[in-house]
């Protein structure tokens, strides 16, 4: 196999190009897979379905601000221990919650939607005033049994504009941009 060991210039070039190509593809794949902003990791494997469907809790029990604030608000673990002071189930996640909540700096639930600074979105305006159901943007979050790594509905500017156009709501730039 002497021929193969000494590669011709064309093949050598092709092999080099392939390597670079694969390296670029690998770089992109690695970057996407390990994007710290891409996947949101929550401190507790919170089960929305159990709390909303089974326990019948209202959204505002934990998302305390959605009715009259810009942000909907996320609960801190202290709020959880309002109910979970003593274990209510045998769930290992609950045990973890109770343990985490007593630490000096308990971790917080992280938000899924990352709104850029230059866009103004207000829950009060959309939920309280316009009466949109949560599912319009949050999809079937209430059905989930574990926290999703990202938003269930991809909201981009076009999503906003389409919805605004359908409902005959202003689409001028500074209604949202700031």
């Amino acid at each position: 196999m002497n021929v193969d060991e000494k590669l011709g210039p064309t093949r050598r070039l092709a092999l080099g190009a392939l390597t670079v190509l694969m390296a670029v593809a690998g770089f992109a794949a690695g970057r996407v897979t390990f994007n710290p902003n891409g996947a949101v990791v929550q401190p507790i494997q919170f089960n929305h379905r159990k709390h909303v469907k089974d326990a019948g809790l209202d959204c505002s029990t934990c998302h305390q601000y959605y009715a009259d604030h810009q942000h909907s608000g996320l609960p801190d673990l202290a709020l959880c221990t309002g109910c979970h002071q003593q274990p209510m189930t045998k769930s290992p996640e609950e045990a973890k919650l109770i343990k985490l909540a007593t630490t000096a700096a308990p971790p917080a639930f992280r938000k899924l939607f990352r709104l850029p600074d230059h866009a103004y979105y207000s829950h009060r305006r959309h939920v309280t005033l316009a009466g949109l159901p949560c599912t319009t943007c949050h999809g079937a979050i209430a059905e989930t049994t574990a926290p999703p790594p990202g938003p269930l509905v991809q909201v981009v500017m076009k999503t906003c504009l389409d919805c605004h156009a359908r409902r005959n709501v202003p689409t001028n730039c500074i209604a949202c941009h700031r």
């Binding site: 009259d68 009060r124 500074i174 209604a175 700031r178």
Partner: peptide, 28 residues
């Protein structure tokens, strides 16, 4: 009000962010 990045134009907005909030408050 958002913090502008390098390389863009900025200008007086007649404080339009206040209009966003004021209009919302009026509707509330």
């Amino acid at each position: 009000v958002s913090v502008r990045p390098v390389g863009v134009i900025e200008k007086c907005t007649f404080c339009s962010h206040r209009l966003q909030k004021a209009r919302e408050m009026a509707r509330v």
